[in-house]
Each structure stands twice: as C-alpha cells, then as structure tokens.
Amino acid sequence: MKIQKKAHAGTLESGDVLVTVMPSDTLTIEIQSPVVRQFGDAIERSARDVLDAMNIRQGAIHLDDQGALDCTLRARLHTAISRALMEEDDTADPSGKDGNTVVMTE
C-alpha cells in the first residue's frame, strides 16, 4: 500500500514523537531525535516493523522524536498511517507491488 495523503500523529512534548507521513514514490524514513546517536537504529527498526505490519511500501515518513519510548513511537506511527489511509481505502492501489527503491535518510 502507499500513503495517499498527508497525516500527522503525536506531539512535540518531551517523551512523545510527532510523526508526519506523506505520499511519495519511494519509501523514506527521516529521523530527527535528541537520542539519534544512541537509538537511531532502534527507531528505524521499529518504524520499519510498523510499516511492514501495515503493508506500507511507499511514503515519506518523518519522525520528529522527543525521546519517545518504543511503544509510543509505534503507536504514533500506527495512528499517522491509519489517518493517512482513512477514506482513501477504496482508492488505494490494490497491487501493492511497485518495485520501489527504499531510501533511508537520517
């Protein structure tokens, strides 16, 4: 599935993360975090987990992290994607196979 519209979840309060998801032809994950040096890889892994579980292959994912715990990160990303997919469910590309290249930036 691909992200069809822009959506947010979360906040910029300490311990939270503001997730923004946007339509894109590729899959990119951008992580901004005060603990990126300690937990950047872990954050990326969890984000990929959620994306895989929700079958998301295309989209620009931006995580503005304020030191969120893993469970918060997963919840916010899940909510943002659900919001982005709402109403678009019937128009979404059902094939899901688009052979996109995955670009990861930090």
């Binding site: 979840a9 918060t72 919840a75």
Partner: peptide, 11 residues
C-alpha cells in the same frame, strides 16, 4: 481519540 486508543493499547 484514535491516537489515545492506540497509545494506551501499546502501553
């Protein structure tokens, strides 16, 4: 409501 439900479920 959706965000809180998801957050509490994860927690």
């Amino acid at each position: 409501k959706d965000a809180a439900r998801e957050l509490i479920s994860q927690a």
